[in-house]
Amino acid sequence: MTPRESETMSIFSPALAARFDALVEKYPVKRSALIPMMLYAQDEIGYLSDAVIAEIADRLGLTELDVRNVASYYSMLRFKPAGRFNIQVCTNISCMLRGAYDLFDRFQEELGVGHKGITPDGVFSLEEVECIGACCWAPAIQVNYDFHDELAADSVPGILQQYRERAAANGGR
């Protein structure tokens, strides 16, 4: 594919495609844009689909194998869709000491899914994750990129409600 072709055929929104065009110019070496590109693409598309990998490989002049090799290294990147709101519960030591497992159990109960599960309506997915850098405000979770800290099992319904409302406001999904 020539660059022009790839532009017109981009699977990304025009804004994201433009952002990528700028991103590759930022570094001394184009390839440095790879990890941010994958993460931003995932934010938009939901996961690293074959098409996403193909376009990123093309934009950076890499093989798809190379892109997959890198992508599969990083734990935030995924090759399958997650829920619209991905709930990431840290159970690492500081959070664990302050009740992270109870929190995680409560999420499992409320959502009816386990680690890496997605609710049937696709609104939520749940993940037990490693330390997210909120140890002093434990236990903490991230919903997509939003932090919620100093939680207790009882905070769960409120958090879920908040996101359900957002999902509803955005037309169901």
Partner: peptide
Amino acid sequence: VWALGVQNRGVSSVIAPNGE
């Protein structure tokens, strides 16, 4: 030829071929 790579990390690391 660059047809082989390493995927995943840690103990899940695996040698992977270019055609998946």
